[in-house]
Structure formats: C-alpha cells, structure tokens
Design a protein around this nucleic acid. Structure first.
Lengths: 338, 338
DNA sequence: CTGAAAGCGCTAACAT
DNA sequence: ATGTTAGCGCTTTCAG
C-alpha cells in the first residue's frame, strides 16, 4: 500500500511536510509545495492510513454504539440518528447488538475500548444485573480517565451524560389518557426487569393510575419482553386470569403488537372490547390493524443529539443531559370501555 | 493508558513475552511466566490497544458495511446477520448508511479503506451512476490488491463474490402467482432506476408476464422508490391513469405498503378490487392490514453468509457466490380479480 | 517554511 | 523459553 513516505518522495519533500499538507494541519506551507504534495498523492491514489494516524494522535475518529438489537426498529432509528450525527464530523460508527446479554455487552464494551473508540454510546437501557453493573463501571471509569466519552441514550445505572426520552412522564400520560377515556382497570405489559428502562415506564404507569385515582394491583401487571412473543404471552396470561381489564398498555410497540395479535386470535375486538396502547411510535405502529395508539418518541433525534453530545465530550466541552418529551399519538386502537 | 510495557515490567518479563501470552500466540511460554503476565495484566486492568496491534499486523479485525439505510428493516436484518457472523470471530462492524447517494457512498468506501477494514461489504444494491461505478471500481481494485476482501449482498456492477437473493426468480414467481389467480393486467411498482436491484426485479416481473402469456406494456410499470411515499405516489399514478389493473406487485414491501395506504384512502378494497404483493417479507409485512402477500427473502441469512464469506476471503480461502432462493408467502392481500 | 528524528503500542523476526 | 530490536505509517516537537 502506498504510504506517506511514497508521496513525500514523489513530491520531493520530507514526510513531515507531506503529513502537514495531507492531514490538513494549520502549519504554514508554501503554496507550491502544497500543490506538489497533493498532486503526488492523487497520482499515487494515496489513502492515508487511519490506523497509523490514530496510533500517533491517540484519536481514532470512531465511536462505538451498543444496542439491544439493531434489527429492532426502535434502535435502528437511534443508530441512524447517531450515524448522521457522527458522519457530519467525519467519524465512523461501530455497531454492536448485545441482545441484552450481560456477558455479550461486557465483551463489546471491552472490544470497543480496545479499539480505542473516541466515544462509547449505550443506546439501549442499561442492564440491571449487579455483577454487570460493577464490571462495566470499572471499565468505563478507566476509559473515561483516558479521555473516553460515554453517553447513554436510555436509563443506565452508570452515571454519565445522557439523551433520554421521558419514559416515566410518557407512560404516565398514556395511563392518564386511558383513564380519561373511562377505563377503570388498565393493565400494563412491562418490559423485562433486566433492563433499566422497564422500571421507568412501570413507574410512570403507576403514577398515572394514582393520578387518576385508580387502584393499582399486581394482577394488572404482566411481564413482556420487548418483543412480539412477549406481548402475546402477556396478553394470554392476562386474559386467562381474566382480571376484567378493558385496556392494555404495553411498554413497547412490539409488545403492544403481540397483544394485538393475541386479542385478534381470541376474537376480542380492539378497541370495542379492549383498548391497546404502546410506547415508541416508530415504524409499523401506524400501519397495523388497527393503527396503534402510542407514546411517540423521536428516536432519530435521540441518536442525533447523542452523537453531538458524544463529540462535544471528546473535545472536553461541557454538556447537559437532556430529557426529550414524548408525544401522545391517539389512533384507532384505543377508545372508551364497552 | 496502561500499555504492554507496563504489564511486562510488572510481571518482570520483556514486552515480547508479554505480547506472546496476551495475544494468544502459539509460541511456547513457561506456565509460570504465563500466569505472572496474566496476573499483572489483570491487576493493571490492561486493555490491549487494537490500534497498535492493527498497525503492527496490518489486520484490524474490523469489517465495514455500506447499506442504503440502516433504519430500513430490510437492511437492519442484513446488518444483524453480518454482525452475528463477524462477532463469532471477534470482528467489529462499521456501519454506514449511504442513502443511495453516490458521493456519500464513495466517501464511505474511502473512509472504510482508510480505516483499513479487513473486509468491505455492500449490503445494498450497487448504484447505476457510471461515474460512481468507475470511481468505486478504482478504489476497490486498489483495495483488493492490498488484500482487502469485498463482498456484495445485492446486485452490484463491481464483480466480486456475493450472497444475493434470487431477485429475478422471485419477482417472476410472484408475477406468475398473480397470473395464476386469474389476473390479466398486473402492474409493477419498480424500485428506483438508480439501484441495480431494481433492474433484476423488473426483469423477473417481465419474464413472469411472458411465461404467463400476458402482455407487458410500459403503462403497467411505474417507478417507486423503495419507500412508502414512493409506493403511494406510484399507486396514485396508476389509478389516475386507470389502466384497469387488478393486481399491483411492488418491488419492495415498503413500496407495497405505500400502495396499500393509497388504495385504502381511495376506498379501493384489497384484495377484492385490487390485489397487492410485495418483496422482502421481513418486519411488518405480516402485520399490516391486510397482511401482505410477499416474496420472502431471508435477509438475516444473507448477512450471516456474507460475513462468513468475507472472513474466508480475508484468509485467502476460495469462496463461491451464492444465490439464495426466495419463498412465496401468500397472505390476505392477494386473491382472484373481481 | 521545511526537515530530522523520536515515538505512539504492539508484533515478529532473529538472537540467545 | 525468553529477550532484543526493528519496524508498522503517521504526527509532532525541535532545529534550522
């Protein structure tokens, strides 16, 4: 592969000079010299070796992001936002799907740090496993001591600047909305307890019930799993126990979709018999049958702002965590109770 | 940051020895020495610098993938497959969304090569822009001369090993299926002409018509854009010109979804008045109203096989391109003509 | 304005 | 079995 030295030789200058012109340094260079270097680089099809540059400067111009699953619409949108944000400043993005497995996530954290990414972004909610939390904190503390930037785009036990949608407030608003339609028994399909985000949305739901003067009750909360199958099983559980619910609020749209499918297969009409609501609002939510009422979260924006925050941190600038509002999107899957 | 030298010093060995044990070399090392090194590394929280390692070995253990848009379900699944494939061998994945913009795609190719990825994967169909093709070919030729591996996961003008779904055959099968239901005038919502894939699916459609003895005709083909809005406009065009079609086959599921929405807004019943079919089969296709008949393509598998192929290439092993079959998924959006 | 040279952290001959 | 040393390709003082 052609190197800086080749370019320098061809241009009849030292590699120091060649470096200065090709790396966009502000060091003064005679116009003519500059042009010769560029010319030589072009002729040789020179592509600077970022690896060598990174070693010399200790900046890789890369950022790593860990998501639960890139094939999940929700995270795909966050990642796209991140990508747009970092691309604007010439950074490249490493993407890692952890499947919420603590070991795998830890492995990725280590791998990304080994690759000396300038910033590390957690796009999915942190895991609640205490062993994981301890170990990841150790890694991240060390990473930050060495000028690594860490950003969270969802609730995370590790204290770090974040861009997060208002999970609690959003869940509360949705619950109150259902209550305002007249529902008295509102069930909640929670996310997996292994993820921090779940607790926030559950809390919002509980606050919503309280605000509406509605009784809570453990029989109203069933565990989903942030996927369709989980939502389906949750709905089945709920219906089998028959606590007389007239509304089901799921912690994510995919869970809600599972609920929808289970209800359909049982010939329960939505929203005539039971109302269904989700959280997220991307992708298919508006397109299913019936269109899903949901709390819309602007995930692309989360990613974009997260990228900017991460890059600012790498420059040593101060940042402030942001809590993005969610938006109630009322569609056809919710209505008054029968 | 703690370096190999630190570990070596602490363990009382040379950095060569430390390197040998920590890099998993097969070089023989006394058991005791090995343990001392590991111990020292652990105590210091040593994380090997992949950047330095990459510079020394000229292998980065990274691969780059260029997709049209990571937020598109279709590509998100491919990327997930790729990730699973490379992760199994300890590689990291750079993800780049080009939005099918030649300049942006070229920029990414260059950036990935600059980062010395061991393999470069094109997940989206190649662009038809001749200038782009020439320039990308130049870059890739040089890249391959330097042991870079290039894999395509969709039709691409650049000749390189590939894992591709049978776009032609799939489109033909779907067309024949519609014909077998009794449809005589089958319209096609093609992809954007700027992408190679589009031509293949269009060709399959045309072959399908021919095989069924049905007349083709330019008035039956309208241009979509691999997104919902494109499908919507295409359907609107079609209906406004009213060529009397009873079936609309869209080159992608998202286009088909746009068609569905436009038909719904015009009170055209599906499939009673008009049948609608798509291509892809991931994500929401089964969940919309009515569930979409489509040619299922196993995109996760494309990614997984693509990753394996790429890694084999980096080892200098021989590979053979694979053409993955698609599967006709008949659902409720298609039926006999009125 | 340009060059010489040290060094980023690791690996890989080549000794011993 | 272990150590010495020369790079990998670039940036960056420090001289001139």
């Amino acid at each position: 592969m052609t190197s800086l030295a080749d370019v320098a030789k061809r241009a009849g200058v030292s590699s120091a000079t060649a470096s200065r012109v090709l790396s966009g340094s502000s060091h003064p260079i005679r116009r003519e010299t500059r042009e010769q270097v560029h010319e030589a680089a072009r002729e040789l099809g020179f592509v600077p070796n970022q690896v060598a540059r990174a070693l010399a400067t200790s900046r890789t111009t890369t950022v790593g992001v860990i998501v639960h699953d890139i094939a999940d619409q929700y995270f795909a949108e966050v990642v796209r936002g991140l990508e747009d944000g970092v691309q604007a400043e010439g950074y490249q993005l490493f993407v890692c799907s952890s499947d919420r497995d603590p070991a795998r996530e830890l492995g990725y954290v280590e791998a990304l740090i080994a690759n000396r990414v300038d910033a590390l972004v957690f796009a999915g909610g942190g895991l609640t496993d205490p062993d994981y939390q301890r170990r990841v904190a150790d890694r991240l503390d060390a990473y930050r001591r060495n000028k690594g930037a860490v950003v969270a785009l969802a609730p995370h036990a590790y204290r770090t600047p974040s861009v997060i949608v208002d999970n609690r407030g959003g869940a509360q608003t949705m619950t109150e909305h259902l209550a305002s339609l007249g529902h008295k028994r509102i069930a909640f399909v929670s996310g997996p307890p292994s993820v921090e985000t779940s607790a926030h949305r559950l809390e919002g739901y509980q606050r919503g019930l309280a605000a509406a003067g509605l009784p809570a009750g453990p029989e109203l909360v069933v565990e989903g799993s942030f996927d369709m199958e989980g939502g389906r099983r949750a709905a089945a559980d709920l219906l089998d126990r028959d606590p007389g619910v007239t509304a089901i609020f799921a912690a994510t749209d995919v869970d809600a979709l599972g609920v929808l499918l289970e209800l359909r297969s049982r010939r329960v009409r939505v929203p005539d018999d039971v109302s269904v609501a989700g959280f997220g609002g991307g992708g298919f939510a508006a397109l299913v049958d019936p269109p899903l009422t949901t709390m819309g979260a602007r995930m692309h924006e989360v990613g974009l702002l997260g990228a900017r925050m991460a890059l600012r941190l790498t420059r040593g600038e101060r940042v402030r965590s942001v809590l993005l509002p969610t938006e109630l999107l009322v569609r056809a899957s919710t209505g008054p109770p029968p």
